[in-house]
Amino acid sequence: MKWSFKQHSVIPGFSLALGFTVLYLSLVVLIPLSTIFIKTAGLSWVQFWETISSPRVLASFRLSFGASFIAALVNTLFGLLVAWVLVRYRFPGKGLVDALVDLPFALPTAVGGIALTTIYAENGLLGSLLARVGIKAAFTPLGIVIALTFIGLPFVVRTVQPVLQELDAEMEEASACLGATRLQTFCRVILPTLLPALLTGFALAFARALGEYGSVVFISGNMPMKTEILPLMIMTKLEQFDFAGATAIAVVMLVASFVFLLLINLLQWWSARREA
């Protein structure tokens, strides 16, 4: 039998559609990203290493990865709670709450950043309350975590919600019939079913937080060695016309993003294999 790419279909246009897809992805994604590697290749290994291991860059690596991790963790916990409330309970204004979840998606991130800074600044609405107990939110790593939590919330909620919706209520009833307590039912029956979705949501929120710029630069204060995030480091290098240095940091972030994409796909493959 002759092997062929083409499969019989009632809708024609396989060659045209595939050709356009490849061209489109190349123009929009592949070519711009590959220039980062080409530009970085202008540096020698030593220069590359020096750029990414300078104390200031290292500090921002730690900050960006650390804050993103904490924010994604917080989002996983509270995103699950929000999704649970939205799926399991009926209450007035539910539609509004559901829509609110998407707000961080829709809002220009700079608007979010300014709003958060205003509220969490020492003379702001929440900032003044926090200041009273001795916590400084704006212009500290805590502020960065808050901003990253804000922009990452929809990811966990929107990945967990459909899975929770499809969760068979009978499975919980079966668990109770077999003598499991509510906590046991949650930990042994519900959580394992939600785990792939939770991990996917976590990875998405983490990846998004890593690259976030707009909402963070206002609340972080951008103090060298203290509150400079990675995207800001790239901006700074660019402003100093250190293009190779900027792309070196970009390469590291790009590789990190790839690793995360790979992890997400592995997760989905793993959970699909078990339930297929």
């Binding site: 068979d168 079966a174 019939c177 339930e275």
Partner: peptide, 18 residues
């Protein structure tokens, strides 16, 4: 339900998929 010690079989099995 827990205290009644009954066995319940559901129409759509309700097996734990994982």
């Amino acid at each position: 339900v827990r205290e009644r010690n009954i066995g319940f079989v559901f129409q759509h099995y309700a097996l734990f998929r994982h």
